[in-house]
Design a protein around this nucleic acid. Structure first.
Lengths: 342, 342
DNA sequence: CTGGCCACTGTAAAGGTTTACATCATCATC
DNA sequence: GATGATGATGTAAACCTTTACAGTGGCCAG
């Protein structure tokens, strides 16, 4: 039963007294095989504990059942919950998940492209906003790919993410409903397309409330803690302070929060702060951060499903799947100090 | 140059005007090939952009260059930084990393065992304290495996982790040096071997300071937030409270912290608290948590290195590699309320 | 009875690689 | 100059699977 070498299709065929072709058919095209034969084959499979040799199969098919997932940094805590969605969906369809991380090194990205070819992976999931391969590879034809989290810059690659505009809109709407009218947007940047969309949501929210856009209230920032701190410093050098800070992501919000605390202010009594992403730390900050949640596991699931759909090429791939973000209301938002609501 | 179908070893052989055997040798046993030939082959490889077809190679060798990493939950934020170490080390040696997660479901564990065989993976990295496969598989011969984080119960599987005894010792020593003598240990349990070791460190620390072990001060707990809360309730139902809570992990410490805050106590003024693991949230708690850091990336690196060593079977595998844990001193520890030091 | 169709099954080739074995040239030794 | 050792290379089999094609037998219609 449990021999030293694993059972091959030939072992199964011998026991079931059929040819190996029939065994293969019984597995992959059961309707093409007589019921009685199918039964014999299944028994033989159970008896031998046979599992298809994926290597032989992939060699024959010229394509393996593996999906390569490449992120700039797999150590990012945001990454892991997406991975859950990706893996579950892949597994449910008989695919395996290979992972890699580039550390934003194009050289490493190219290595993964080689790796991809070597392992004949069926598809590619990209976490990077940019193609992790050098320009030469970018022009060449890419394997079936799906972007996650944010659009991939230079390639018509479909992507699955959150509706950034709507998410930002929810945050700004909350602030407005609390009575804020001077709301700063921190983290304007062209490093990430997602950031631009969040700003769009911010502007739309202001417009809907009839609040004119004040360009002085839009500050640069690349999404790091430091950038939040820095933007804050710039604002405090002027006269007209906002009453609320809407940050492009949670890191930035953390920077702002730390900066405000360092100046002796209380949140949300003196100022309100919102973030975006809902990183695991957000609920542990003091005060806990009101932010926009990325439905990470769902994003992963949809991304993998989309890729798998593309592989079995039914229908043209959508270019964009946007999931609805939820606002997570915690304790970093309140009415403005002079607000009427308190 | 970049054709539709990828170049095979035959293409390389034709261009280099040698046989495919020579090409294969030039790649894998360069010293067995004349220098001039090697040069021709390398040129041809560069010209064609040839990459070995890993499927064909694995089929021939009966073993692939893939390592399967199985965790109960890949969504665990602790997991990702280990993954970084694992992946880097694997990649450096030309191995790919496949991931899976069992969600503590034995059925799923078995699926991964099948998967392992099907993909002819070279080795297995286990995050589980128990073998994720049912008992039947446990008795069968396992592939080369390495445990990570904590010993694997039922199997003589080497593992890489942190020296739990030493880590706990550092935590208790800090508390003692601050003046604490009534120190509770929360999270005694046999669900995880690591927890038992941490208790050992706790006891050793007390003994070294000449503090008699008070069994009333050792409370059960399975490492969840709730278990921390629960243990606290139990303690408060007695007369003799400790001045410090040494928790078996950060989750438990969080539970204790929340419980103390709910009762209106200040940390570290009224009570001191320590954790273990240094999860990403620990620095965001209020007060930020003094805890023992697991060098996660290093653990991953060592685990993969050990596994790879075992595969090329030089030397017998060590059964245990314990890394030195560092104490991360933050703000949850101070002298006891009646302490002399303040 | 013949021919044709159908449902099922078998034969054999192909996919790309590694490696045992065979071959061949070269060179040192006596 | 014959012999054998050495080093470099080629030939061909094997790894396990899928699938095009061919074959078989049964059955029905003419």
């Amino acid at each position: 039963m449990s021999n030293s070498t694993p059972a091959t299709i030939e072992d199964v065929a011998r026991i079931a007294e059929v040819s190996i072709a029939t065994v293969s058919r019984a597995i992959h095209m059961p309707e093409k095989v007589a019921k009685s034969t199918r039964l014999k084959v299944n028994q033989a499979i159970a008896l031998t504990g046979y599992t298809t040799n994926a290597m032989a199969r992939s060699l024959r098919l010229g394509r393996s059942n593996m999906i390569l997932v490449v992120a700039p940094d797999i150590g990012d805590p945001n990454f892991s919950s997406i991975l859950v969605g990706l893996e579950n969906e892949a597994r449910a369809h008989g695919y395996g998940v290979l992972i890699g991380h580039t550390q934003n090194d194009a050289q490493r990205g190219l290595e993964y492209l080689k790796f991809f070819n070597s392992y004949q992976a069926a598809g590619l999931i990209l976490f990077t906003g940019i193609l992790p391969f050098g320009h030469q590879a970018a022009t060449a034809s890419l394997p079936p790919s799906v972007g996650v989290f944010e659009p991939v810059f230079n390639g018509g690659i479909p992507y699955v993410g959150v509706d950034d505009v709507e998410g930002a809109r929810k945050a700004v709407d909350l602030l407005i409903s609390e009575g804020h009218r001077r709301i700063a947007f921190i983290g304007d940047s062209n490093t990430r397309l997602a950031y631009g969309r969040r700003r769009l949501g911010y502007e739309a929210g202001l417009a809907a409330a009839g609040i004119p856009l004040n360009r002085q209230m839009v500050l640069d920032g690349d999404g790091t803690v430091e950038s939040g701190r820095l933007a804050l410093e710039q604002l405090f050098m002027r006269d007209d302070l906002p009453t609320a800070f809407m940050c492009v992501n949670d890191q930035t919000a953390l920077g702002v929060t730390l900066g405000l605390k360092a100046r002796g202010y209380e949140i949300p009594d003196d100022f309100s702060v919102t973030g975006f992403d809902d990183v695991p730390q957000a609920s542990f900050m003091t005060p806990s951060l009101t932010t926009v949640r990325q439905p990470r596991t769902a994003i992963g699931k949809h991304a993998m499903a989309l890729l798998l759909d593309m592989l079995s090429d039914r229908a043209a791939p959508e270019t964009e799947i946007l999931l609805r973000p939820d606002l997570v209301v915690r304790n970093s938002v309140g009415p403005p100090p002079d607000g009427k609501k308190r």
